[in-house]
């Protein structure tokens, strides 16, 4: 089996992760396991600084000038923090940093948050109200499927009404 991260080396390691209650199987090579944060190091404790330095050392300090070119370093357009500054501080400079360094964050989050990279939970009520309703509708729809499968039709009807109600609410706001 090939490594599902680099698709080059053979997968020599197997991890089972529980993300949002769902089991996910991960097959990766040793290099990717380290770089993409699948391997955790409990003996390092929770020293984030250590975590970040170690991580970036292996992942981003590729030998400079091997191809006769020097890559321009990533820098946040809003707060001007560079990737190496982020690495040193272990802290973001501003909300836009999340966008700027987006491609480099999954491995860090995976390590810090037990394999997770995506938010599940509260959504701001006012500014992201639509998103909140949409997520709620999605959750109800999933529940509806489950109830129908279990032939709990009475409860399913209640959930269907809730969905209808929410969808009408949002339609009302559009006009």
């Amino acid at each position: 089996m090939e490594c599902q991260e680099c698709h080059q080396r053979p997968a020599t390691l197997h991890f089972t992760q529980v993300i949002n209650g769902e089991k996910t199987e991960v097959y990766v090579c040793e290099v990717c396991a380290k770089e993409e944060g699948y391997m955790s190091y409990p003996e390092e404790g929770f020293s984030l600084h250590h975590l970040l330095s170690g991580l970036f050392d292996s992942a981003f300090e590729s030998p400079k000038g091997t191809l006769g070119q020097q890559k321009k370093e990533l820098q946040c357009p809003k707060c001007e923090m560079t990737l190496s500054e982020f690495r040193r501080a272990g802290k973001f400079g501003c909300p836009a940093c999340y966008e700027t360094f987006a491609d480099n964050l999954d491995p860090i989050f995976r390590r810090v948050h037990s394999g997770n990279t995506k938010h599940y939970g509260k959504i701001p009520a006012r500014a992201f109200g639509d998103m909140r309703v949409k997520k709620q509708v999605d959750a109800y729809k999933e529940e509806l499927q489950r109830l129908i499968k279990n032939e709990a039709f009475e409860e399913a009807a209640t959930v269907r009404d809730k969905i209808k109600e929410l969808e009408e609410e949002t339609r009302g706001e559009d006009t």
Partner: peptide
């Protein structure tokens, strides 16, 4: 939040200064 625009992202949740707090911020 009625009066403040929070730093929030659909994928990452509530954005925080330290990567250890991102998501719920809780």
């Amino acid at each position: 939040e009625g009066k403040i625009d929070y730093a929030f992202d659909e994928k990452r949740g509530y954005l925080t200064g330290c990567p250890t707090n991102v998501g719920t911020g809780m």
